[in-house]
């Protein structure tokens, strides 16, 4: 009887000690022109999130195109400037991604992004002449780097908006590791990093938003220690007076909003900066271009492509991780 009672007490005490599990902390901030949510589990979860927020704010101060004191603004001023090692390295990576993607990702497209103003309160439809006048300013060849010394050709400007959040997610991932975060995730306005697993050991469940019904999900994917970034025209756009819809991703080759047969592109890989750059590039490339690019770089990333004709393509690395509703809005097809 005593043994039974002792055993019962032990079981109950063990159950109650489960309440001492590492604490889950969440944080929401507005930065880099978007809302950012973070969740961390661990004994130093609160400190990890606080350090992550500080890091994101530091990067915004360094890389923002709209902050006069940033290094990017200094570069855009037209003077030859010496930037930090960090900015120089990020610029070099941006140039590499531009070369790899055939210029479909290009940080020098900024003059056209600003002229269209689709992300601003006063978007404008540019005429063919206006586009033709600005297009010669686009191209990585206008960015001259010698170590940390950077010069832009006259009239050119850069915007790291299509890569900065991805880079920020890489930095947050490092902070999570430094603070021993057991599990968690960050969502930096369309850039996600899933760290470790949930408390039950399962990967984090990430819903890829349905571009045609943004309150719903097109697919679910389980991620652990991976980055995922989605780009799509549905995320920001404006409707002109004549009813034409102009989405926010500018094709550097035409100087106009990309006309893509894709509704959205999701890139999943082990590097947030790469995922950010590639998701934009693949959207601009369109379905056939994106397939061809993936076939050349299939070891580097996985992807989910949602097309205008309601097909959801996914790559073999996502087999067993991706769930698409049968009979839902999209027909799932495996790429090979």
């Amino acid at each position: 009887m005593k043994r039974t009672l002792s055993l019962l007490l032990c079981v109950l005490l063990t159950l109650s000690l489960a309440g001492c599990a590492p604490k889950e902390e969440t944080l929401q901030i507005f930065a880099m022109d978007t809302v950012m949510d973070m969740l961390a589990v661990g004994s130093e979860a609160r400190e990890a999130l606080s350090a992550s927020a500080q890091e994101i704010n530091r990067l915004e101060a360094l890389l923002s195109r709209t902050r006069e004191s940033s290094e990017v603004s200094a570069i855009n001023s037209g003077k030859t400037v010496t930037v930090s090692d960090e900015t120089a390295e990020l610029l070099q990576r941006a140039v590499q991604y531009a070369a790899l993607t055939g210029g479909t990702f290009d940080i020098t497209v900024e003059p056209l992004v600003s002229a269209w103003g689709i992300h601003t309160e006063s978007p404008k439809v540019l005429s063919a002449d206006e586009i033709a006048a600005l297009l010669p300013l686009v191209g990585s060849g206008h960015l001259h780097m010698d170590g940390r010394t950077v010069t832009l050709d006259e009239g050119c400007s850069i915007d790291l908006g299509a890569i900065a959040k991805g880079y920020a997610s890489d930095r947050v991932a490092q902070i999570f590791r430094d603070y021993g975060v057991e599990g968690g995730w960050v969502s930096l306005g369309g850039n996600v990093y899933a760290h470790g697993t949930k408390s039950d050991g399962k990967p984090w469940s990430v819903a890829i938003r349905d571009p045609q019904n943004t309150a719903g999900a097109a697919a679910l994917v389980g991620l652990s220690n991976q980055f995922a970034v989605t780009s799509g025209g549905y995320q920001r756009y404006f409707t002109a007076e004549d009813g034409t819809v102009y989405q926010h991703i500018i094709d550097p080759s035409t100087g106009a909003p990309a006309i893509s047969d894709l509704l959205s592109v999701t890139v999943i890989c082990g590097n947030g900066t790469m995922a950010d750059a590639y998701s934009t590039a693949l959207y601009v490339m369109g379905l056939e271009g994106a397939k061809a690019f993936w076939q050349q770089h299939s070891a580097d990333f996985d992807m989910v492509l949602i097309t205008q004709d309601n097909i959801l393509y996914y790559t073999p690395g996502l087999q067993g991780k991706l769930t698409v509703d049968e009979g839902g809005a999209y027909d799932a097809k495996l790429l090979s």
Binding site: W185, R209, A217, G232
Partner: peptide, 27 residues
Amino acid sequence: GQSIVCLPEQVVIRLDGKSDGPDIILG
């Protein structure tokens, strides 16, 4: 897990509760 966000006015409308749904919404 779902939310509505207005960036210009920094308004976040968030639904919390037990859910079998996703942990993170991407896109």
